[in-house]
Design a protein around this nucleic acid. Structure first.
Lengths: 329, 329
DNA sequence: CCCATATATACTCATTAAGAGCATATATAG
DNA sequence: CTATATATGCTCTTAATGAGTATATATGGG
């Protein structure tokens, strides 16, 4: 049975982007704001999710034993939010940022202090092998169920399925949601749903940040505040982005082999791909051009080095061309 | 020739989401923030782009003769940004909101006042025929070139092409960009690129808000501040959203004919569609179910009324199913 | 020199989705 | 009874996708 504290948890759920009307969230029941209420001044914090690839796995740069992102307050001198974020990151790490995008803005009421904290999160890509002083952590240390490149995560998914079935109980709509989000019951696994999966686990009380008492929770590193939710947002966004954008190239070295490119895509998507089809499609799009150079391997035929062809970048982006993710069953 | 003031304009360009590294924006040339700088308190404003459909055309609800959106400051009492926005909208209009999503957060340095203004924009859908007191304005009054459902916009596009060609001059990369964004030279028109098109026109000095002197500009209503850019963001986002989300149903009446659904999609996408293919795909996805009722037309065979089938909503959203946009040449 | 190994390529084939067209059915107003 | 406006059914062609088989090319080690 679901304890009553579940309802309490529900009320603390962060705002969700729902793609359709949520009937059980009657906004007319909200307490109306008294008209004498005063607008407030806010502290504004810029949070940076810095993504890079090492060891064929997506990593983030963290502070405080993996539980925080680089961040800093918005200053008067900052001429835009993005520039402010870049300034803080440079100051803290000296890194140059590649593809950058705003993720989401949250409010955090600081009760009793008479003002709110607004937190604006960004995601930025960092080229492989850049030097910095921050600790790298695999994204999949935080969300072990999101890496489905091999069968290693199958037992975990099986555990999750069991817990969710228990949580769903006899609520068919709830189970329907679980099944589609986690690719159970004939549904296909959709890698872009990382955020929805995290939110579902949150609601089900299967992650430590939403658990009452000492209920058993799933493996996965925690973070401060709601940073883990920001990370889930980033994962969803980057998986969506690499599909119709040449953003991956900001994670790879300037020159790379097609296998490296494929492995980077696989690392981000958390899925293995069909090699021949991958190459076919990549080359169709003319996103890359071969260089004169070759990789120097320890063994085997040396791989041709390619580079990103920026002339076609705008082209690719705009024509809606996408890097293919031919899934492997 | 491009006057020097163009460079001045460029510096005021708002941050862009670029999908790849922009080589000509060397962030290491930014003035470093002095370490004695103080974090500041910000005024925070919540801005709402409220979208509805009337007359087979997407409209927005506006204030101040179409030049502003409903908005209000974030208050201490607001328990989240989205709830704050909903509160303001309800207070100003009494409307219930459908599909809601955060668009983007901007900063607006208030020089000399020692703090910044942070503006958080939301988009929300409003069901057809809802009553309210605000003025409705067609989105295409602001961006006439975005409505390509018939040949009426062809002359305008031709004008734009000429101006852009002049602006591009002998810079092939620049022209390449124009061609892909505006679907010139064999490129297909991509309706999701409204924001990129607006930004391009901004850079080219073809919209009044970026024009020096009395240079000739394109038709289209203006708005206060950078609200027109927010609207372009909203248009891009809604066009992207309706493709893989049942969000359209929050714009239609509870019961609708398939033709109404198609016309709503066409209105949002700004493109005409192939009727038979549209129906084929919509029904494949089981997104709608027929009701017992029929439309009462003035003439012709009465159309069957359908309703959104919410059981399959989660399904559709998550399986990546999409409402089809079969384009008509 | 030959071989195991790791990579790069070429080609085929079945299935499905998408774009576009033709034809017909059904109801209503006048 | 007819013009009109809608709803349907069905057929093509072409392109994209998923999956498989086979082969070529280079390297280091015996």
């Amino acid at each position: 049975m679901i304890p009553a504290s579940c309802e309490r948890m529900r009320r603390h759920l962060p705002d969700k982007e729902r793609s359709y009307t949520v009937p059980d969230m009657p906004s007319h029941l909200e307490t109306p704001i008294p008209t004498h209420a005063q607008p407030v001044l806010c502290e504004t914090e810029l949070v940076a999710v810095l993504v890079s690839i090492s060891n064929n796995t997506p990593h983030i740069l963290t502070l405080d034993q993996g539980s925080a992102f680089p961040s800093g307050p918005l200053m008067v001198e900052h001429r835009s939010l993005q520039k402010g974020m870049r300034n803080w990151v440079e100051q803290q790490t000296g890194l140059k940022l590649g593809h950058t995008e705003q993720l989401y803005t949250f409010a955090d009421p600081l009760h009793g202090r008479g003002h709110q904290m607004v937190r604006i999160s960004y995601m930025a890509f960092i080229r492989q092998n850049c030097e910095h002083t921050l600790a790298e952590r695999s994204i999949y240390d935080y969300f072990p169920w999101e890496d489905r490149r091999d069968r290693a995560s199958d037992p975990l998914l099986h555990t999750i399925a069991g817990r969710l079935r228990h949580w769903a109980g006899d609520n068919p709509h709830r189970w329907q949601r679980c099944a589609t989000v986690f690719g159970l019951d004939n549904h296909a696994w959709n890698d872009e749903l990382s955020l929805q999966r995290y939110e579902l686990l949150w609601e089900a009380g299967l992650v430590p940040e939403s658990t009452w008492q000492n209920a058993p929770v799933l493996p996965g590193l925690r973070m401060h505040r709601d940073y883990r939710r920001i990370l889930a947002t980033a994962l969803s966004r980057m998986r969506a982005k690499i599909r119709y954008t040449p953003a991956v190239f900001d994670l790879l070295p300037r020159q790379f082999t097609l296998l490296q490119l494929q492995q980077a895509m696989e690392a981000l998507a958390g899925r293995a791909m069909h090699k021949q089809n991958f190459r076919r499609l990549v080359q169709q799009q003319k996103l890359v051009s071969r260089t004169a150079e070759y990789d120097s391997p320890t063994q085997g035929r040396p791989a041709q080095l390619y580079q990103f062809a920026p002339e076609t970048a705008e082209n690719c982006y705009l024509a809606g061309a996408k890097l293919p993710l031919p899934a492997i069953s």
